[in-house]
Design a protein around this nucleic acid. Structure first.
Length: 245
DNA sequence: AAGCTGCTCAACCGCGATACG
DNA sequence: ACGTATCGCGGTTGAGCAGCT
């Protein structure tokens, strides 16, 4: 069901991913986050485009991603949101935890489009509208919780003080400040924050262990983006959760 | 058994938005 | 203000599979 693997003129692999590639990508992102999709495959040892890596991660490998059949509730949600938002798949996906925009789009084209058409015809026949637009807007409020927003603002102010980290020392201190903030704000559960992990990120939370990569010149400076910090903290929680649960 | 057809879904492609120098 | 790089989104493709003839 997937595309046959092949290589383009730049020796970049295309088509279906194999288990080895999945493992490499997963391991790299869990350890270092996805700080630059274009450069990521090089550091992760993958002959893939950054775009392909991003897609694979977002649609298949990222934590808590769900696969398989949609529940009735999920389908209803998609139908309702599609009526309200149209083909804004990524926005619709933000209301369905664990579902990727791609999966929702596929589901729409294969099942729900027909169901929506049928429903519309039924409604026209009955002259009854089951979903009022104002109901839909109150049901789906902003998915980001207030506490998350406050934490996000704290993180942003932290990053404003240290946006460009030019050495591994600065990177580490910036990351640990963010980690402390995440613990104190309750974003990281206390059982994880208090836990002394058997795992560490090595000498530095982000940079590859491979010295040859670090000394190659093009990786001396790394932008400490909020996405980078968030994904690192999320990876930390996810990884250490394995030892606790 | 073989061929055909439609369905499914992972992956690709192109384009617009945004960031950055 | 402009050019370039990168990202993210939505549309589309194509291979595998199941069911039908």
């Amino acid at each position: 069901m997937t595309k046959t693997p092949s290589f383009d003129k730049h020796r970049v692999k295309k088509g279906a991913w194999n288990e080895d590639e999945d493992n490499k990508l997963r391991a790299y992102i869990q350890r270092y986050g996805h700080w630059n999709w274009r450069l990521l495959p090089k550091f992760a040892g993958l002959s893939r485009s950054g775009k392909s890596c991003r897609l694979r991660w977002m649609n298949y490998l990222r934590p808590n991603i769900k696969h398989g059949n949609f529940t009735k509730e999920e389908e209803d949600t998609v139908l309702e949101l599609h009526e309200k938002l149209g083909n804004k798949w990524s926005e619709i996906a933000s209301y369905l935890p664990g579902r990727s925009d791609n999966e929702i789009k596929n589901r729409w084209h294969t099942h729900l489009k027909k169901r929506a058409k049928k429903d519309r015809e039924m409604l026209q026949n009955e002259h009854v509208r089951t979903v009022q637009p104002d109901q839909a807007s109150t049901k789906f409020e902003n998915p980001v919780q207030n506490s998350d927003l406050e934490f996000q603002q704290d993180i942003e102010s932290l990053l404003a003080e240290s946006t460009l980290c030019t050495s591994s020392t600065n990177l580490s201190s910036c990351w640990f400040s963010g980690f402390d903030l995440a613990c104190s704000s309750g974003y990281i559960p206390h059982e994880i924050a208090d836990y002394t992990p058997t795992f560490s990120f090595g000498t530095n939370p982000f940079l590859p262990d491979n010295d040859s990569i670090l000394s190659s010149g093009d990786n001396r400076e790394m932008i400490m983006s909020d996405e980078f910090l968030w994904s690192s903290i999320d990876s930390y929680i996810e990884y250490n959760d394995q030892f606790i649960n």
